[in-house]
Amino acid sequence: MQIYVCIKHVPDTAVNINVVGECGFDESVKFVMNPYDEYAVEEAIQIRKKAGGEVIIVSVGKEAATKTIRSALAVGADRGILVKTDTQFLDSSLTAQALTKVIEQDGSPDMIFTGKQSVDSEGMQIPYRLAAAFDMPVVSDVAALSMGDGNVTVEREIGSGSREVIEMTLPCVVGAIKGLNEPRYANMVGIMKAKKKKLDQIDIADLGLDINAAGTKLTELKPFPERGKGKILQGSPQEMAEELTQLLKNEAKVL
């Protein structure tokens, strides 16, 4: 099995984002692997353990993304490829094209994993565009997966606690969510090994993509206004509950 896992280097969800200029932000904050991608990496490693083969990490991002690729190599992925760009917010379609090109140049995927979305630009479409490019079936929001003979059965969350059980043939694309597995932590041995694993870098300009052909362009990024300190109610639980009910009805008018 040749399994490709597409991951993104994103700001840690525990940090605040300070907007800089028209559509940038202060990138000196801590960056991590996109949380949903951790489940994608773990699932690929578990499948390789049973079926054999290779797990290849692919990312599109700035040079600093090598750190996140190394963290995937430290938990057991075999090697990595970074497509270098100079923006954190590349158009989703271009990102998918870049991923497609490098995967095509590298080998022939039996499975491609991604997280269901990035937690920064929240495009939510990379798995679908990869599937169309490789002419493979795709399911995203996958919370359970079991390998069959030439096929895979997945459970897709569809809201309200319900799931669809979907069978698809290999090769295929899977978008992972939390709950798919318990991602492992890297140990010292893994971290040391990762330093010696192969990590290729290629500039996006060398892939022959027209960067200016983006169908979507971020034109403005601004902080979402914070609300101030609210009204703190006083009294017994019953008194506060009754006052709140009246405030929600008559002042806030949301009931």
Partner: peptide, 29 residues
């Protein structure tokens, strides 16, 4: 081109608004 989870649409200017980083920042695309 596709934008998901939009909270505003301006047909005349071909722009949409949505959040980046969940509710931390507001983006125009």
């Amino acid at each position: 081109p596709l934008t998901l989870d939009c909270v505003g649409v301006n047909l005349a200017e071909d722009t949409v608004t949505k959040f980046h980083f969940a509710g931390k920042t507001f983006a125009t695309i």
